[in-house]
């Protein structure tokens, strides 16, 4: 396993796209939310002040929501690039010819995804802790970690997005096409389906859509706060129960991996 990871590191260490995305993610993660400080000096209600974005325990949710977009765009793009570039350079084919079994090649990519998810989660956890400690008056451990397993949720979210990107890259193999489908599915197609489900079914079934479920692991904090109100008033909830979201996200992630493996195993290299 470690050897597979070392080899992946050697492959992508000098890849300018991967390096740029990696730096971008690392730099943007703690800074994007800080930019809000100058943009949102006097936020409108229901936010009492912009300090809510940075103090414990709400920093976990707001920083998580920022991370949601960054992981979806940057980490997802990185996974798509790492897989499809090997297809276009034909190095995937050469790796297999040189001796990797299909299983080893697949596992090597999965290890990279897990490592990226761990890295993103560490950055998330550290940035939340630092931002929270700077902006929270008084230090109460209970308050600091009153976050509903935020780091675990964030990790599952990273895995969900990246495994979806991996599945798309596996199915389409072409860099441009898979990037288009990845972004279009999440940003256009699924919201249209969601809207249609809400319009025709008039219930909360739309919340069970795959990317919506993964997104809800770290959704816009206001959605979760207003969910109960909407449920009572309109009979429709905009987010699922957190435990359901976690469980379903794991199921979807496993499904993405299984489908990607079945496709990879069956396809010619």
């Amino acid at each position: 396993m470690l050897q597979l990871l070392k080899t992946e590191y050697k492959k992508f260490r000098y890849n300018s796209t991967v390096s740029l995305l990696f730096i971008l993610f690392t730099v943007l993660f703690p800074t994007v939310i800080l930019a809000g400080k100058s943009i949102l000096k006097n936020p409108s209600p229901p936010f009492p002040s912009n300090n809510i974005f940075y103090e414990f325990p709400t920093v976990w949710e707001y920083q998580g929501y920022v991370g949601n977009w960054l992981v979806f765009f940057i980490m997802g793009f990185m996974v798509l690039h790492m897989f499809t570039s090997e297809v276009s350079y034909k190095t995937m084919r050469q790796n297999i010819i040189a001796g990797y079994t299909k299983k080893e090649y697949f596992i090597s990519k999965m290890i990279v995804i897990v490592c990226l998810a761990v890295y993103a989660t560490i950055i998330y956890t550290l940035s939340c802790l630092v931002l929270g400690m700077i902006h929270t008056t008084g230090f109460d451990m209970e308050l600091v970690f009153d976050n509903n397993w935020a780091s675990t949720r964030f990790f599952i979210m990273c895995m969900g997005y990246m495994c979806f990107a991996f599945l798309v890259a596996n199915v389409l193999r072409s860099g441009g096409l898979s990037m288009f489908l990845y972004f279009a599915f999440a940003l256009i197609l699924e919201p249209i389906i969601k809207g249609a489900m809400l319009y025709y079914l008039k219930n909360s079934a739309m919340n069970y859509l795959p990317l919506n479920t993964i997104e809800d692991l770290m959704c816009m904090p206001l959605f979760r706060t207003s969910s109960d109100f909407l449920q009572t008033e309109a009979g429709v909830s905009v987010v699922n129960d957190l435990n359901v979201t976690i469980g379903l996200s794991i199921v979807y992630t496993v499904l993405f991996v299984v489908l990607a493996w079945v496709k990879f195993k069956k396809s010619d290299v």
Partner: peptide, 29 residues
């Protein structure tokens, strides 16, 4: 395949890596 060395159609390597680094990846595999 560990006991076989092969070129199929075109030479396929990582374009942004030099010769030695490309060969090291084959060594790893």
């Amino acid at each position: 395949r560990m006991r076989i060395g092969a070129i199929l159609e075109t030479p396929n390597f990582y374009p942004y890596l030099n010769a030695a680094k490309n060969l090291q990846i084959i060594q790893d595999i």
